[in-house]
Every structure is written in structure tokens, then in C-alpha cells.
Nucleic acid binder design. Structure first.
Lengths: 241, 241
DNA sequence: ATAAAACCTTGATCTGAATCAAGACACTGC
DNA sequence: GCAGTGTCTTGATTCAGATCAAGGTTTTAT
């Protein structure tokens, strides 16, 4: 019913716009203009509202997702409702690939953390394109490898480090990402943060306080001033508070 | 100096032997005889003794490893010597791929758990082969995807489940792997087991006892009789003991 | 601007599992 | 068959962090 309309929208605007976006995504670096155009033809875009589910653990996965705008989380829920966040992704990141290459279904769920624009590439056509484009395949291998590396770090943190060390490590990661040694701004609520590093809001609150008392940081609502980077690094490696 | 000799060995024996092994490995399923022969030419084999390191976290990774015989572990060590086992792999499994596709170095270390024969495929030539062989690339993507899935399960277990649930889940996994609903044999020492599920030998010991008292299992040194599979499943999902 | 809802902090208490300590068991090679 | 070494069990104690409870603050939507 709406097809005529959507098509004409795509014709001039959607398509070219798509290429411009796709070009900025690491996964597609090194692809020719032709290949990008092919991609832009198979891409579908959708908006999600804050809190809206993108997919559920156990759903059949039928394509890969790319964050264009906004931020999303990928997470697991336990039987009794506790949450562990696996990733938080912003513009340019891809997610949901596991079932594309492995069959089966999503091992985790995904939700928009704020209003988000998501690009979707349907499985069959994407797989065909990868088979025909070695560079894209290699990019994808690199991408999955990076994720495996990230997971080993996360597992190490959860099982070998205590909460203060994990929190310190997270602040240092933010500082690196934001290119700012002096202060970082928390991209997520403290409740989300607690799920990301595997603890509770109460504990986060207490740790921030302790780290403040120890002269490592100063917390102003959503901004954290780093007063002793060395100290934070030491804490993140093995330290107690 | 030894080249003449090795070459003549390979000519009739080494090569064919290599192909026969490579053929049984999931990663290489669907490859033509030609492609397998190419692989067999770039493969190098090495034996490791129990306890011998295969690579260290931080080393430059310059190829992929395949277990031919024996069993190996991939693990992380914390600053203060605590260990978290990430994987235990037997014949046919590949490991050490992350740096091959991502550059950088090994995110974890690897050690032989018993006498083990390991096949090594040097990076450059393996990457070239993948680029030229879409089926191999797709197999590799599937392999990495499976590992990502395994990691999400491991992270969920570590952060959302308690020790009894993790232990129950591990026993059920073993039962599935060994195709035996009635009894499983532990493939590793209880000390290694404790590192695999992220706890200590003392705690493992106590939990086995509790699970015995609850009528779920009966432990005989290295063999565990499963007396109440339903109960184990319930415990693995969310249960307390 | 204001009400409602989310989010955050703080204190008191509880608990799962680590740690410390010491014995028992069970595989090695001699 | 026995000493010796590594592996496992058991008990006592400690501790990090979860949970419960309640008040305070910021954000969001109307």
C-alpha cells in the first residue's frame, strides 16, 4: 500500500544519503563506489524510540544492524530479571551478526537507549555480497576478532577484578575514547553503568564516593573530573580502594 | 642444513597425512582437494608437553593453531596470579585467530594440558588463501561467530549466575558432549574446573558435596553419576542449592 | 512550570564465596 | 609396597558486595 511512496522517496534521497553514511563505517572501508551502491540498495532504515527493543534473545537473526544515530545496548537478562550489558554501541558500529554467519538465533537482546536510527542489511543479500567481495569478508573477520578480544577483556574483568578496578578501568576507557585526560562525561546513566560492569547502582554510588575521598576523581552529576590518572591506572590493574 | 631431509619426508608422507587430518576439521569442510593440498603445504606441526606454553598473552600472533591431538587451554592470568580459563579445546578445534585478522597481539595465553600435537598455519599465507577462497572465509566467520556466542554465555554465567548454577550447567554441557545422560567423566582436574567456572577448588568441593546431599549427583573421583537430570537443569537455570 | 517518573544516595543488614589452615586421599616413580 | 608429591576435602573465619529500605535529586513530559 505504501510502496509507491517509499520507492519515490528512496529514488533521489534515500539512496545517495545511504552511500554517504555507509562510507563512514569502518566495516565498509576499502569498498569501491560500485560495491557501496550495491550495499545502499539492500539497506533498510528504521527509527527506534528510547527503550524500544530492536531484537530479543532467541529471535531468528536475519540480517546485520548498523547504528546510524543514537545509542543502543546489547544485553542478557537472567531468569530473575537481572541484566548484564554486553555492549553499548553508537554511530558506525554494527551488531547482531552472530546469527548471520552461524545460523541459529540471537544470543542476546538489543534495545535503543535513546532515539536511534538503525540501518538493516538483510542476511541473504549481505552474505552474497561478502562472498563476492573478499575485502568485505576480511573487514568482517577483523570486526568479529575485535569483538572476541573485547569479550576476553570483559570476562577477565568480571572474574579476576573487583568492582573498584572495573570502575576505574571503565573511566580510563572513557577518557581514552573522549580524548580527555582531565574529565569524562558519562554516556549512560549510573544504573546502566552498574549493569555494564556487573554490579548494582548502590555499589557504584559508594565506589564513586570512595574514589572521591581517595582524591582520584570528583563527580559532578554526569561529569567526572579525573584528579589522579596514575592512581586510577594503578587501581584498575589490581588495586583495592 | 636439514632441508633436504625434511623435504623428502614431506614428499610422500607428511603431505598426505596432513590432508587427511585437515579434512576432518570443521573449519575446512567444503574445501576442494586442491585447496586442502595448498593448506597442507603451508601447515607446520609441533608437539607440546603437558604444561608447556603454546603462546603468551601479549605475544605477536602470526598464524592460527589447530589441535590435532591432546587438549589445550586458553586462559587469562590476573596480576596476582589468579587464572580464568576461557576455553579448553581438543582435536579439531582452532585457536589463536584473533590477532591474525585484527593485527595486534594475543589477548590471552595458551598451554598444553597434556601431550598435544598442534598444527600451525602461518598468517600471511593463510590470509591469502582465505581471500582467494570464499568458502573458507565463510567457515571462518561462522567459527568466530560461534565463539562470540560461547562468550556471551560465559559472561552471562559469570555475572548473572551463582556457582551452583554454573557448575550444574557445566555438568549438563559435559553430559551433552559425551552423549550420556547417566554419567559424565571430568576431562580436567577439579582445580582446572574451578578456574573454568570462575571459583576456587574449595568451593567446587563443597558444591559437589551439597549436590550429592540433594540427590542430584554422586561423585566418584573423576566420574559423576547424574541421578536427577531435571533437578540439575532447574539448578542451572536460576536455582539455589 | 509543574507534576510525575526515573534515577541516585545513604545506611543497616545479610550472604555467597574467598581465604586461611590443616588433614586425607590418590596417584608417581622407586 | 612405600615414600613422596600433587590433588582434594573439611572446617573456621573473613569480606566484598548484594539486598532491603527510605529519603533526596534530577530528568522528562505535559
Amino acid at each position: 500500500m505504501c510502496c509507491r511512496n517509499r520507492h519515490s522517496e528512496n529514488f533521489f534521497k534515500g539512496e545517495l544519503y545511504g552511500i554517504k553514511i555507509l562510507k563512514t563505517i569502518a566495516l565498509f572501508s576499502g569498498l569501491s563506489a560500485d560495491q557501496l551502491e550495491t550495499l545502499s540498495h539492500i539497506a533498510v532504515r528504521k527509527d527506534y524510540k528510547r527503550g524500544e527493543m530492536i531484537f530479543h534473545e532467541g529471535d531468528k537473526g536475519n540480517g546485520i544492524y548498523i547504528v546510524e544515530t543514537g545509542r543502543i545496548k546489547v544485553f542478557k537478562l537472567s531468569m530473575d530479571g537481572k541484566e548484564q550489558i554486553l555492549h553499548i554501541y553508537g554511530p558506525g558500529h554494527t551488531f547482531g551478526e552472530v546469527p548471520v554467519f552461524q545460523g541459529k538465533n540471537f544470543p542476546a537482546s538489543s534495545m535503543a537507549l535513546e532515539t536511534a536510527g538503525i540501518i538493516f542489511l538483510p542476511r541473504d543479500r549481505f552474505v552474497k555480497l561478502i562472498t563476492a567481495t573478499p575485502a568485505l569478508g576480511m573487514n568482517m573477520l577483523a570486526d568479529l576478532s575485535r569483538r572476541l578480544r573485547d569479550f576476553t577483556v570483559q570476562i577477565e574483568a568480571l572474574s579476576l577484578k573487583e568492582v573498584p578496578a572495573r570502575l576505574a578501568a571503565y573511566l580510563l576507557t572513557l577518557s581514552r575514547e573522549q580524548n580527555n585526560d582531565a574529565r569524562v562525561s558519562l554516556p549512560i546513566s549510573k544504573a546502566q553503568l552498574s549493569n555494564l560492569i556487573g554490579t548494582t547502582p548502590e555499589t557504584i554510588s559508594r565506589m564513586f564516593k570512595k574514589m572521591g575521598d581517595a582524591g582520584l576523581i570528583a563527580v559532578q552529576t554526569r561529569t567526572i573530573e579525573i584528579q589522579d590518572k596514575e592512581g586510577l591506572e594503578e587501581l584498575s590493574e589490581s588495586g583495592r580502594l
